[in-house]
Amino acid sequence: MTLHTKSLTEELADWLAQGGRRIGEIVILPSAEGWEVRHVDDAESPATSLTAHKTPEAAREISKYDAAGQYRPLKGAPNLVHGWRLILDTTASLRDALDFFYPAALGNWVAFTQGRATPSPIRETFARQTGMYRITGLLDEDDCRAVVADNCAYATNCRRRIAWPVAAGVPFDNLPPEKTNLEPAPDEMPVLCLHACSLLVASARTYIKKKRAAAGQ
């Protein structure tokens, strides 16, 4: 039994053929060599003003630190550095590079749009934690709304768009629309968040410990 009718590289090629150009903070431009990836703010910059790279792995290094030299464990953070261009000769190489800039974004989007991905409601994610994170199971629905609003802000913290509700049948009602809009502009592939990341789980732990301490528990 074959899982997919098309490979992820073929899915990417289809998206590009239909005019797909943007993912998160990057833009993909057709070029004589194949494809050129840039920070979206550098789309109009003269090529000579940008540092050229030619391997997919360069994307891993470009996306590792922010402009201040701080480590970027969260690739959805809206602080991708400027000043580079990545020239790739095949769509397969482009796919590899995308998985370094926005890990799993292509696969998540394809699986989600094909109905093969089931996002975890945030309370389920917290409830299944064990060890030091087991305490996150104590967050109630309002706690979840507060933690997500504080930590996942689209404009300042993370460009992933959350596909999960607070609990089954309980959508978020306190987030700006871009955070939960899973179908942005036609030329943009949304960077989907199908399951809360470990940074959010860690923040939830800090939140509930503080709350319980304040309540004398």
Binding site: M1, T2, L3, H4, S7, L8, P73, L74, K75, G76, D99, P103, A104, L106, G107, N108, V110, A111, R116, A117, S120, L194, H195, C197, S198
Partner: peptide, 21 residues
């Protein structure tokens, strides 16, 4: 592919990144 507990891609998304059966 690689996946991580504290980095991306996460364990729950890595299977979406592969084509193989």
């Amino acid at each position: 592919q690689c996946a991580f507990w504290k980095e991306e891609p996460g364990f729950r998304e890595v299977m979406h990144m592969i084509d193989s059966d």
